[in-house]
Design a protein around this nucleic acid. Structure first.
Lengths: 184, 184
DNA sequence: ACCTGAACACCGTTCAAGT
DNA sequence: ACCTGAACACCGTTCAAGT
Protein backbone atom coordinates (compact mmCIF):
# COMPACT_ATOMS: atom_id res chain seq x y z
CA UNK A 1 0.00 0.00 0.00
CA UNK A 2 1.33 3.38 -0.98
CA UNK A 3 1.96 5.77 1.88
CA UNK A 4 -0.51 8.39 0.65
CA UNK A 5 -3.13 5.66 0.31
CA UNK A 6 -2.58 4.61 3.88
CA UNK A 7 -2.87 8.14 5.15
CA UNK A 8 -6.11 8.53 3.25
CA UNK A 9 -7.53 5.46 4.89
CA UNK A 10 -6.56 6.66 8.35
CA UNK A 11 -8.01 10.08 7.75
CA UNK A 12 -11.30 8.55 6.66
CA UNK A 13 -11.46 6.50 9.86
CA UNK A 14 -10.70 9.54 12.00
CA UNK A 15 -13.42 11.61 10.41
CA UNK A 16 -15.86 8.70 10.43
CA UNK A 17 -15.44 8.20 14.16
CA UNK A 18 -16.20 11.84 14.76
CA UNK A 19 -19.12 12.09 12.38
CA UNK A 20 -20.77 8.78 13.20
CA UNK A 21 -20.55 9.39 16.93
CA UNK A 22 -22.37 12.64 16.45
CA UNK A 23 -24.96 11.36 14.02
CA UNK A 24 -25.44 7.70 13.17
CA UNK A 25 -26.65 8.35 9.64
CA UNK A 26 -24.05 10.86 8.58
CA UNK A 27 -23.72 10.73 4.78
CA UNK A 28 -20.74 8.82 3.53
CA UNK A 29 -20.18 11.53 0.95
CA UNK A 30 -19.75 14.14 3.64
CA UNK A 31 -17.29 11.91 5.48
CA UNK A 32 -15.32 11.55 2.28
CA UNK A 33 -15.37 15.28 1.72
CA UNK A 34 -14.30 16.16 5.27
CA UNK A 35 -11.55 13.58 5.02
CA UNK A 36 -10.37 15.34 1.88
CA UNK A 37 -10.69 12.38 -0.45
CA UNK A 38 -12.77 11.73 -3.54
CA UNK A 39 -15.71 9.38 -3.63
CA UNK A 40 -13.77 6.74 -5.48
CA UNK A 41 -11.01 6.65 -2.91
CA UNK A 42 -13.56 6.27 -0.18
CA UNK A 43 -15.16 3.32 -1.93
CA UNK A 44 -11.98 1.47 -2.59
CA UNK A 45 -11.30 1.49 1.13
CA UNK A 46 -14.81 0.78 2.33
CA UNK A 47 -17.09 -0.85 -0.23
CA UNK A 48 -20.19 -0.13 1.83
CA UNK A 49 -21.39 1.56 4.98
CA UNK A 50 -21.22 -1.59 7.04
CA UNK A 51 -17.54 -2.08 6.31
CA UNK A 52 -16.74 1.41 7.52
CA UNK A 53 -18.86 1.29 10.65
CA UNK A 54 -17.55 -2.13 11.59
CA UNK A 55 -13.96 -1.01 11.35
CA UNK A 56 -14.50 2.15 13.37
CA UNK A 57 -16.42 0.29 16.03
CA UNK A 58 -13.94 -2.53 16.16
CA UNK A 59 -11.10 -0.19 17.01
CA UNK A 60 -13.06 1.69 19.64
CA UNK A 61 -14.36 -1.41 21.37
CA UNK A 62 -10.91 -2.88 21.45
CA UNK A 63 -9.85 -0.27 23.98
CA UNK A 64 -12.41 -1.57 26.43
CA UNK A 65 -11.57 -5.15 25.65
CA UNK A 66 -7.95 -4.61 26.44
CA UNK A 67 -8.66 -3.68 30.04
CA UNK A 68 -9.94 -7.17 30.84
CA UNK A 69 -6.61 -8.78 31.63
CA UNK A 70 -5.62 -5.84 33.78
CA UNK A 71 -8.80 -6.13 35.81
CA UNK A 72 -8.21 -9.80 36.37
CA UNK A 73 -4.88 -9.03 37.98
CA UNK A 74 -6.29 -6.60 40.50
CA UNK A 75 -9.58 -8.18 41.53
CA UNK A 76 -11.40 -11.38 42.23
CA UNK A 77 -12.65 -12.96 38.99
CA UNK A 78 -16.31 -12.20 39.55
CA UNK A 79 -15.60 -8.61 40.51
CA UNK A 80 -13.39 -8.21 37.48
CA UNK A 81 -16.18 -9.52 35.27
CA UNK A 82 -18.71 -7.17 36.74
CA UNK A 83 -16.39 -4.20 36.59
CA UNK A 84 -15.63 -4.94 32.98
CA UNK A 85 -19.32 -5.04 32.15
CA UNK A 86 -19.76 -1.68 33.82
CA UNK A 87 -17.01 -0.23 31.71
CA UNK A 88 -18.54 -1.70 28.59
CA UNK A 89 -21.86 -0.14 29.53
CA UNK A 90 -20.22 3.20 30.12
CA UNK A 91 -18.51 2.96 26.77
CA UNK A 92 -21.70 1.93 25.00
CA UNK A 93 -23.46 4.98 26.39
CA UNK A 94 -20.67 7.38 25.54
CA UNK A 95 -20.54 6.13 21.96
CA UNK A 96 -24.28 5.89 21.54
CA UNK A 97 -24.18 7.42 18.09
CA UNK A 98 -21.70 4.82 16.96
CA UNK A 99 -23.78 2.02 18.42
CA UNK A 100 -26.77 3.35 16.52
CA UNK A 101 -24.73 3.36 13.35
CA UNK A 102 -23.90 -0.27 14.02
CA UNK A 103 -27.51 -1.22 14.54
CA UNK A 104 -28.56 0.44 11.33
CA UNK A 105 -25.67 -0.70 9.19
CA UNK A 106 -25.42 -4.35 10.17
CA UNK A 107 -28.17 -6.53 8.83
CA UNK A 108 -28.49 -9.80 10.69
CA UNK A 109 -26.03 -9.59 13.55
CA UNK A 110 -26.26 -6.61 15.85
CA UNK A 111 -23.88 -4.58 17.95
CA UNK A 112 -21.03 -6.71 19.11
CA UNK A 113 -21.88 -9.86 17.21
CA UNK A 114 -20.87 -8.32 13.92
CA UNK A 115 -17.33 -7.83 15.11
CA UNK A 116 -16.74 -11.53 14.75
CA UNK A 117 -13.89 -13.30 16.43
CA UNK A 118 -12.28 -10.12 17.59
CA UNK A 119 -10.91 -8.54 20.69
CA UNK A 120 -14.25 -8.56 22.49
CA UNK A 121 -14.62 -12.29 22.15
CA UNK A 122 -11.10 -12.77 23.45
CA UNK A 123 -11.67 -10.50 26.42
CA UNK A 124 -14.94 -12.18 27.30
CA UNK A 125 -13.38 -15.62 26.94
CA UNK A 126 -10.62 -14.58 29.31
CA UNK A 127 -13.03 -13.32 31.93
CA UNK A 128 -15.34 -16.30 31.67
CA UNK A 129 -12.49 -18.76 31.91
CA UNK A 130 -11.09 -17.13 35.05
CA UNK A 131 -14.51 -17.23 36.67
CA UNK A 132 -15.23 -20.76 35.63
CA UNK A 133 -11.95 -21.91 37.10
CA UNK A 134 -12.64 -20.03 40.31
CA UNK A 135 -16.05 -21.64 40.48
CA UNK A 136 -17.83 -18.31 40.59
CA UNK A 137 -20.02 -18.89 37.56
CA UNK A 138 -21.71 -21.91 36.06
CA UNK A 139 -19.55 -23.94 33.72
CA UNK A 140 -20.05 -23.99 29.97
CA UNK A 141 -20.98 -20.38 29.29
CA UNK A 142 -19.58 -19.33 25.92
CA UNK A 143 -18.58 -15.82 24.89
CA UNK A 144 -21.46 -15.97 22.46
CA UNK A 145 -23.90 -16.67 25.29
CA UNK A 146 -22.50 -13.78 27.24
CA UNK A 147 -22.73 -11.30 24.39
CA UNK A 148 -26.36 -12.23 23.85
CA UNK A 149 -27.10 -11.82 27.55
CA UNK A 150 -25.85 -8.24 27.66
CA UNK A 151 -27.30 -7.24 24.30
CA UNK A 152 -29.85 -5.12 26.15
CA UNK A 153 -27.14 -2.58 26.89
CA UNK A 154 -27.38 -1.24 23.38
CA UNK A 155 -31.11 -0.69 23.70
CA UNK A 156 -30.77 1.70 26.59
CA UNK A 157 -31.34 5.35 25.89
CA UNK A 158 -28.08 7.12 26.78
CA UNK A 159 -30.02 10.16 27.94
CA UNK A 160 -31.83 9.93 31.25
CA UNK A 161 -30.63 7.61 33.98
CA UNK A 162 -29.07 4.81 32.00
CA UNK A 163 -26.95 4.02 35.06
CA UNK A 164 -29.92 2.58 36.86
CA UNK A 165 -31.24 0.57 33.94
CA UNK A 166 -27.84 -0.79 32.99
CA UNK A 167 -27.08 -1.65 36.60
CA UNK A 168 -30.28 -3.64 36.96
CA UNK A 169 -29.63 -5.51 33.74
CA UNK A 170 -26.08 -6.39 34.67
CA UNK A 171 -27.16 -7.49 38.15
CA UNK A 172 -29.62 -9.86 36.55
CA UNK A 173 -27.03 -11.23 34.15
CA UNK A 174 -24.50 -11.74 36.93
CA UNK A 175 -27.07 -13.63 38.98
CA UNK A 176 -27.89 -15.75 35.98
CA UNK A 177 -24.23 -16.56 35.46
CA UNK A 178 -23.76 -17.39 39.13
CA UNK A 179 -26.70 -19.81 39.16
CA UNK A 180 -25.36 -23.34 39.15
CA UNK A 181 -21.84 -22.32 40.03
CA UNK A 182 -19.90 -25.00 41.89
CA UNK A 183 -18.80 -22.52 44.53
CA UNK A 184 -22.31 -21.61 45.67
CA UNK B 1 -62.19 8.88 8.42
CA UNK B 2 -63.72 8.17 5.02
CA UNK B 3 -64.22 4.51 4.21
CA UNK B 4 -61.95 4.54 1.18
CA UNK B 5 -59.24 6.19 3.26
CA UNK B 6 -59.50 3.48 5.87
CA UNK B 7 -59.28 0.75 3.25
CA UNK B 8 -56.19 2.40 1.85
CA UNK B 9 -54.54 2.39 5.23
CA UNK B 10 -55.33 -1.27 5.78
CA UNK B 11 -54.07 -2.23 2.37
CA UNK B 12 -50.80 -0.43 3.02
CA UNK B 13 -50.34 -2.33 6.26
CA UNK B 14 -51.08 -5.66 4.57
CA UNK B 15 -48.55 -5.07 1.84
CA UNK B 16 -46.01 -3.66 4.28
CA UNK B 17 -46.15 -6.78 6.42
CA UNK B 18 -45.51 -8.94 3.40
CA UNK B 19 -42.77 -6.82 1.91
CA UNK B 20 -40.93 -5.98 5.12
CA UNK B 21 -40.94 -9.58 6.28
CA UNK B 22 -39.30 -10.56 3.05
CA UNK B 23 -36.82 -7.71 2.91
CA UNK B 24 -36.24 -5.28 5.75
CA UNK B 25 -35.31 -2.38 3.51
CA UNK B 26 -38.07 -2.67 0.96
CA UNK B 27 -38.61 0.77 -0.62
CA UNK B 28 -41.60 2.62 0.73
CA UNK B 29 -42.44 3.68 -2.81
CA UNK B 30 -42.81 0.06 -3.89
CA UNK B 31 -45.05 -0.66 -0.92
CA UNK B 32 -47.21 2.27 -1.91
CA UNK B 33 -47.36 1.08 -5.48
CA UNK B 34 -48.22 -2.51 -4.59
CA UNK B 35 -50.88 -1.24 -2.22
CA UNK B 36 -52.31 0.71 -5.11
CA UNK B 37 -52.02 4.15 -3.55
CA UNK B 38 -50.14 7.27 -4.49
CA UNK B 39 -47.11 8.54 -2.65
CA UNK B 40 -49.08 11.33 -1.00
CA UNK B 41 -51.64 8.95 0.43
CA UNK B 42 -48.91 6.79 1.82
CA UNK B 43 -47.28 9.74 3.55
CA UNK B 44 -50.44 11.04 5.11
CA UNK B 45 -50.88 7.69 6.82
CA UNK B 46 -47.27 7.10 7.75
CA UNK B 47 -45.11 10.20 7.89
CA UNK B 48 -41.92 8.15 7.96
CA UNK B 49 -40.58 4.64 7.79
CA UNK B 50 -40.46 4.24 11.54
CA UNK B 51 -44.16 4.97 11.90
CA UNK B 52 -45.03 2.26 9.39
CA UNK B 53 -42.70 -0.38 10.77
CA UNK B 54 -43.80 0.29 14.32
CA UNK B 55 -47.45 -0.15 13.47
CA UNK B 56 -46.92 -3.37 11.53
CA UNK B 57 -44.74 -4.81 14.25
CA UNK B 58 -47.09 -3.73 17.00
CA UNK B 59 -49.95 -5.67 15.50
CA UNK B 60 -47.90 -8.79 14.89
CA UNK B 61 -46.36 -8.86 18.33
CA UNK B 62 -49.72 -8.40 19.93
CA UNK B 63 -50.71 -11.88 18.84
CA UNK B 64 -47.94 -13.36 20.93
CA UNK B 65 -48.68 -11.06 23.82
CA UNK B 66 -52.27 -12.16 23.95
CA UNK B 67 -51.34 -15.74 24.71
CA UNK B 68 -49.87 -14.80 28.10
CA UNK B 69 -53.06 -14.90 30.12
CA UNK B 70 -54.02 -18.19 28.56
CA UNK B 71 -50.69 -19.72 29.51
CA UNK B 72 -51.08 -18.56 33.08
CA UNK B 73 -54.31 -20.47 33.37
CA UNK B 74 -52.86 -23.78 32.26
CA UNK B 75 -49.46 -23.82 33.89
CA UNK B 76 -47.44 -22.91 36.92
CA UNK B 77 -46.34 -19.26 36.75
CA UNK B 78 -42.69 -19.94 36.07
CA UNK B 79 -43.50 -22.49 33.41
CA UNK B 80 -45.91 -20.06 31.81
CA UNK B 81 -43.23 -17.40 31.76
CA UNK B 82 -40.69 -19.67 30.18
CA UNK B 83 -43.15 -21.01 27.62
CA UNK B 84 -44.14 -17.50 26.70
CA UNK B 85 -40.50 -16.56 26.15
CA UNK B 86 -40.10 -19.57 23.89
CA UNK B 87 -43.04 -18.46 21.83
CA UNK B 88 -41.67 -14.96 21.62
CA UNK B 89 -38.36 -16.36 20.42
CA UNK B 90 -40.11 -18.50 17.84
CA UNK B 91 -42.02 -15.48 16.65
CA UNK B 92 -38.93 -13.29 16.54
CA UNK B 93 -37.20 -15.87 14.33
CA UNK B 94 -40.15 -16.31 12.01
CA UNK B 95 -40.48 -12.58 11.49
CA UNK B 96 -36.77 -11.94 11.25
CA UNK B 97 -37.17 -9.57 8.34
CA UNK B 98 -39.60 -7.48 10.30
CA UNK B 99 -37.31 -7.42 13.30
CA UNK B 100 -34.53 -6.21 11.05
CA UNK B 101 -36.77 -3.47 9.75
CA UNK B 102 -37.40 -2.46 13.34
CA UNK B 103 -33.73 -2.36 14.17
CA UNK B 104 -32.95 -0.21 11.18
CA UNK B 105 -35.92 2.11 11.43
CA UNK B 106 -35.98 2.90 15.12
CA UNK B 107 -33.24 5.21 16.26
CA UNK B 108 -32.63 5.03 19.99
CA UNK B 109 -34.89 2.28 21.27
CA UNK B 110 -34.64 -1.13 19.64
CA UNK B 111 -36.97 -3.97 18.94
CA UNK B 112 -39.65 -4.16 21.57
CA UNK B 113 -38.79 -1.01 23.45
CA UNK B 114 -40.10 1.19 20.66
CA UNK B 115 -43.56 -0.23 20.99
CA UNK B 116 -44.01 1.75 24.17
CA UNK B 117 -46.67 0.97 26.70
CA UNK B 118 -48.34 -1.59 24.51
CA UNK B 119 -49.53 -5.13 24.61
CA UNK B 120 -46.08 -6.57 25.20
CA UNK B 121 -45.57 -4.54 28.33
CA UNK B 122 -48.97 -5.62 29.61
CA UNK B 123 -48.29 -9.28 28.92
CA UNK B 124 -44.90 -9.15 30.57
CA UNK B 125 -46.33 -7.31 33.56
CA UNK B 126 -48.95 -10.01 33.93
CA UNK B 127 -46.44 -12.81 33.82
CA UNK B 128 -44.02 -11.12 36.19
CA UNK B 129 -46.74 -10.31 38.69
CA UNK B 130 -47.99 -13.90 38.78
CA UNK B 131 -44.46 -15.15 39.35
CA UNK B 132 -43.66 -12.58 41.96
CA UNK B 133 -46.78 -13.50 43.89
CA UNK B 134 -45.96 -17.17 43.62
CA UNK B 135 -42.46 -16.43 44.89
CA UNK B 136 -40.84 -18.02 41.87
CA UNK B 137 -38.83 -14.95 40.84
CA UNK B 138 -37.13 -12.16 42.72
CA UNK B 139 -39.36 -9.25 43.60
CA UNK B 140 -39.12 -5.88 41.90
CA UNK B 141 -38.39 -6.89 38.32
CA UNK B 142 -40.06 -4.45 35.97
CA UNK B 143 -41.29 -5.20 32.44
CA UNK B 144 -38.58 -2.86 31.27
CA UNK B 145 -35.92 -4.94 33.03
CA UNK B 146 -37.30 -8.05 31.43
CA UNK B 147 -37.37 -6.65 27.92
CA UNK B 148 -33.75 -5.60 28.25
CA UNK B 149 -32.78 -9.02 29.52
CA UNK B 150 -34.18 -10.83 26.49
CA UNK B 151 -33.00 -8.25 23.97
CA UNK B 152 -30.42 -10.74 22.74
CA UNK B 153 -33.18 -12.70 21.01
CA UNK B 154 -33.24 -10.17 18.22
CA UNK B 155 -29.54 -10.55 17.61
CA UNK B 156 -29.76 -14.23 16.84
CA UNK B 157 -29.41 -15.26 13.24
CA UNK B 158 -32.68 -17.00 12.30
CA UNK B 159 -30.80 -19.35 10.00
CA UNK B 160 -28.75 -22.10 11.59
CA UNK B 161 -29.66 -23.50 14.97
CA UNK B 162 -31.23 -20.53 16.65
CA UNK B 163 -33.08 -22.97 18.90
CA UNK B 164 -29.94 -23.77 20.77
CA UNK B 165 -28.74 -20.21 21.15
CA UNK B 166 -32.14 -18.90 22.17
CA UNK B 167 -32.59 -21.72 24.62
CA UNK B 168 -29.31 -21.00 26.33
CA UNK B 169 -30.08 -17.30 26.56
CA UNK B 170 -33.53 -17.89 28.03
CA UNK B 171 -32.16 -20.41 30.51
CA UNK B 172 -29.72 -17.81 31.70
CA UNK B 173 -32.41 -15.16 32.01
CA UNK B 174 -34.71 -17.49 33.90
CA UNK B 175 -31.94 -18.32 36.33
CA UNK B 176 -31.24 -14.64 36.80
CA UNK B 177 -34.89 -13.99 37.53
CA UNK B 178 -35.06 -16.87 39.98
CA UNK B 179 -32.03 -15.67 41.92
CA UNK B 180 -33.22 -14.08 45.14
CA UNK B 181 -36.72 -15.49 44.88
CA UNK B 182 -38.40 -16.01 48.27
CA UNK B 183 -39.41 -19.54 47.36
CA UNK B 184 -35.88 -20.82 46.81
C1' DA C 1 -61.84 15.53 2.34
C1' DC C 2 -59.03 12.71 0.01
C1' DC C 3 -56.22 11.16 -3.79
C1' DT C 4 -52.61 11.04 -7.65
C1' DG C 5 -48.17 11.22 -9.63
C1' DA C 6 -44.78 14.31 -11.43
C1' DA C 7 -41.01 16.85 -9.52
C1' DC C 8 -37.41 17.77 -6.28
C1' DA C 9 -33.61 16.73 -3.11
C1' DC C 10 -30.38 13.76 -1.38
C1' DC C 11 -27.29 10.03 -1.04
C1' DG C 12 -24.90 5.78 -2.54
C1' DT C 13 -22.15 4.01 -6.32
C1' DT C 14 -19.65 3.95 -10.66
C1' DC C 15 -16.25 5.24 -13.98
C1' DA C 16 -13.72 8.00 -17.44
C1' DA C 17 -10.04 10.98 -17.15
C1' DG C 18 -6.11 12.53 -14.69
C1' DT C 19 -1.44 12.19 -11.88
C1' DA D 1 -0.99 2.40 -8.62
C1' DC D 2 -3.83 5.62 -6.94
C1' DC D 3 -6.83 9.59 -7.08
C1' DT D 4 -10.68 12.97 -8.46
C1' DG D 5 -15.24 14.44 -9.19
C1' DA D 6 -18.85 14.52 -12.54
C1' DA D 7 -22.60 11.51 -13.70
C1' DC D 8 -26.03 8.06 -12.82
C1' DA D 9 -29.54 5.52 -10.21
C1' DC D 10 -32.53 5.19 -6.55
C1' DC D 11 -35.45 6.43 -2.89
C1' DG D 12 -37.74 9.56 0.41
C1' DT D 13 -40.65 13.63 0.49
C1' DT D 14 -43.44 17.44 -1.21
C1' DC D 15 -47.08 19.67 -3.59
C1' DA D 16 -49.95 21.41 -7.43
C1' DA D 17 -53.73 19.66 -9.72
C1' DG D 18 -57.58 16.61 -9.76
C1' DT D 19 -62.01 14.07 -7.87
Amino acid sequence: MRSDAQRNRERILEVALEELTQSADAPLSSIAKKAGVGQGTFYRNFPNREALVLEVYRYEVQQVSDTASQLLQNRAPDQALREWMDRLAQYAMAKAGLADAMRQATSAHGSLAGLGRGSVTSAVALLLKANEEAGTIRPGVTPDDFVLAIAGLWQIDPHGDWQSRAGRLLDLVMDGLRAGAPGS
